[in-house]
Amino acid sequence: MTSFFVHTADEAPWRDAARRLHQSRLVAAAGEAHAEVFDGALLTKPPAIRAALEAGRHVLVAAEPCLPRVELDSLQRAAKQRSLLFALFNPDRFLASRQLLRKQIDGPLGSLELLRSHRWENHIAPAPLGLSGSLVGEIEQAAWFYGRPVRSVFAMQPAGLNAVQVQLCFGPGMATIDYCDALQGTTLTGYRSLSLIGSRGSAQVDDHTNTQLAYVGGDGPTGLTVGEGVRHLAAMLDDFASAIAEQRDFSSTVTDALHTLDVVAALQKSLKTHEPVTLEPAEAVR
């Protein structure tokens, strides 16, 4: 039985997720845990992670890549010295929709040829790397779907809107990402849509089609977006617990994170220069 302590600003989803776990549980204090989970970029501070590792606890950062390269390298070295796991997971990878989509690649869909994602947030997302964390997560996810590194980036920022449109080249394979912070004119939810075009078929997961309608008041229907709940958190904890038990090497998650940092830097350069930016060859994404 693996015990986790979760550093989080919102315990409820983690508690709910924990009810689904067979071989692991949440504990109330770090001192009682085998592993510490840092939920989200804001709570992911290198000194706290270092302290957890020094205390002999495995560490899972449940966020898009949000630490500088030098810190990631240093923390990974510290974990290796102590034979501990240090993993950095974008929780979106564990969403049932994303898992299902990924299983279609190199199977029913054939090779992935084009990925298109929209992510419109209804709030200003934290930007620890100077770029919205949610956008960083979309980039990381695109590379994960392709299973290979990004080769070049072209990015644009429209005037008068906190938004970015990104085109990634995976050579072969391409992706377009449409990101917006602080979606105007909406109230409760943001909007997400992801489509994969493969050589043999296509697949989509889309808030547009997964929205229920409510007729209340006099101003037309209101869309109620159907979320995917907390199962992805349980799946992530399960995977990490089994990795601990099997002493599985999770260093590739850090390699992926480092590559995402390179893409983020290239994107920022592209925004500045208005030109496509080519990346140096990197190791494959897990």
Binding site: M156, A159, A163, Q165, M174, T176, R200, G201
Partner: peptide
């Protein structure tokens, strides 16, 4: 996949393809 810079700071992307009858 095409990225477009338009007048007035407007941006756009389009994705165009003949992606096969089985795709939809």
């Amino acid at each position: 996949a095409v990225s477009l810079e338009l007048d007035g700071g407007l941006t756009a992307t389009i994705a165009v393809g003949r992606i096969g009858a089985a795709s939809h």
